[in-house]
Amino acid sequence: MRRLVLSALLTLAGLHGAQAQDAAAGEKVFTQCKACHQIGEGAKNTIGPVLNGVIGRPAGSVEGYSYSAANKNSHLTWDEATFKEYIQNPRAKVPGTKMIYAGIKDEKRIDDLVAYLKQFDASGKSAP
């Protein structure tokens, strides 16, 4: 009986983890970001920098984009945890950032956005 219960719990935990991030839903969340950012092959810096390869990238490092001193000197690397904290309230995480955005408060939407962003490597190619 214990094995059955343990097996069921592990299965449910695995399902929860699998559902934790949804790239398709994250693409919908990204529509808010499109006003300032581009992603994918052919993306260009606009009001904000290109977000290709953002997860794992040092802050303030996209060539050709004029970052605030606060962002360039933040010494952050956009790993998942740092990005998630930033996107909740950019000005709280990096005081002096040029990013004028109130943030995303819903953790599921943030997880989905991260799943979407993670699909794109630095060249803008997406993983199959």
Score class of each variant (00 low, 15 high):
Cys36Val: 07
Ala59Asp: 03
Gln21Tyr: 05
Phe83Cys: 04
Pro95Thr: 04
Leu113Trp: 03
Pro90Ser: 10
His16Asn: 12
Leu113Asp: 05
Lys105Ile: 07
Asn52His: 06
Ala81Leu: 10
Val54Arg: 07
Pro49Tyr: 08
Pro58Ala: 09
Lys98Tyr: 01
Ala25Met: 06
Gly14Ala: 15
Ala20Arg: 14
Lys28Trp: 05
Arg91Trp: 00
Lys105Pro: 01
Gly14Lys: 06
Lys105Cys: 02
Ala102Arg: 08
Asp106Gln: 06
Tyr116Asp: 09
Gln21Asp: 09
Thr11Val: 14
Lys72Gln: 13
Gly17Ala: 15
Ala115Thr: 10
Leu4His: 11
Ala102Glu: 12
Gln21Arg: 11
Leu9Arg: 03
Ala59Arg: 01
Ala18His: 10
Lys44Phe: 02
Ala59Thr: 01
Gly56His: 10
Glu63Thr: 13
Leu117Gln: 09
Leu51Lys: 05
Asp111Cys: 03
Ala35Ser: 13
Thr31Ile: 03
Lys84Trp: 06
Ala20Phe: 11
Gly53Met: 13
Asn73Thr: 01
Gly103His: 07
Ala70Ser: 04
Ser66Cys: 00
Lys98Phe: 01
Thr97Glu: 00
Ala20Met: 15
Ala115Pro: 06
Ala43Ser: 14
Gln119Asp: 12
Met99Lys: 01
Ala25Tyr: 04
His37Asp: 14
Ala102Lys: 05
Ser66Lys: 14
Ala43Gln: 08
Val62His: 03
Ala92Pro: 01
Gly14Phe: 13
Ala25Asp: 08
Arg91Ala: 15
Ser123Gly: 12
Ala59Asn: 03
Thr97Asp: 00
Thr31Val: 07
Lys93Phe: 02
Val29Lys: 04
Gly53Asp: 12
Gln38Asn: 13
Leu15Trp: 10
Ala115Gln: 08
Lys108Trp: 02
His37Pro: 06
Arg91Cys: 00
Ile87Arg: 02
Lys108Gln: 15
Ile100Leu: 11
Asn45Leu: 06
Ile55Gln: 13
Glu41Tyr: 03
Ile39Ala: 07
Leu12Ile: 15
Tyr101Leu: 08
Gly42Ala: 14
Leu9Lys: 04
Arg3His: 11
Val114Pro: 06
Ser66Glu: 14
Glu85His: 07
Arg91Thr: 09
Ala24Thr: 08
Ala69Val: 03
Asn89Val: 02
Ala18Pro: 03
Asn71Thr: 00
His75Trp: 01
Asn52Ser: 09
Gly96Trp: 00
Glu107Cys: 02
Pro58Trp: 01
Ala23Gln: 08
Gln38Met: 15
Gly40Leu: 12
Thr31Glu: 14
Pro58Gly: 02
Glu63Trp: 02
Lys84Asn: 11
Ile47Asp: 04
Gln119Asn: 10
Lys34Ser: 15
Gln38Gly: 11
Phe30Gln: 04
Thr77Lys: 13
Thr31Leu: 07
Tyr86Glu: 04
Asp106Phe: 04
Ala20Asn: 10
Met99Trp: 02
Met1Val: 11
Asn71Met: 00
Ala13Thr: 11
Pro95Asn: 08
Gly96Glu: 00
Gly60Asp: 02
Thr77Leu: 02
Asn52Glu: 09
Leu6Tyr: 12
Tyr101Ser: 05
Val50Lys: 13
Met1Gln: 12
Asn45Phe: 05
Thr82Val: 15
